[in-house]
């Protein structure tokens, strides 16, 4: 857990420190989008720290595509003779 916190701190400090001046000079819309994406990264950070298996991209893909994909692969797979 401590290791993960250090990793996240390093990542956020590197990312934000490089953009502080740029963000101050950016229009409001850019700042809102930037901060919106960083809020989304906080969600993934929580998932990483807690190993909580929170809903993510694969949850979306699972819901829509896993069943038909498995059907296609099962149809085309052949047991070796």
């Amino acid at each position: 857990m401590q290791e993960k916190i250090i990793v996240l701190l390093i990542v956020y400090i590197l990312a934000l420190s490089a953009d502080v001046i740029k963000l101050r000079n950016s229009p409001l819309r850019g700042r809102i989008i930037y901060l919106g994406i960083m809020v989304i990264t906080l969600y993934f950070s929580a998932d990483y720290l807690l190993k909580a298996e929170l809903p993510d991209l694969h949850t979306f893909a699972d819901l829509l595509f896993t069943k038909p994909a498995r059907m296609i692969v099962e149809f085309l797979r052949v047991e070796p003779t």
Binding site: A18, Y34, I37, D47, E53, L57, H58
Partner: peptide, 19 residues
């Protein structure tokens, strides 16, 4: 402007996606 947030997002996805 979005370079760093995108790279952070992709990094966290890489760390969390495959169970």
């Amino acid at each position: 402007l979005l370079t760093n947030p995108l790279c952070v997002t992709a990094l966290l996805l890489s760390l969390t996606l495959p169970a």
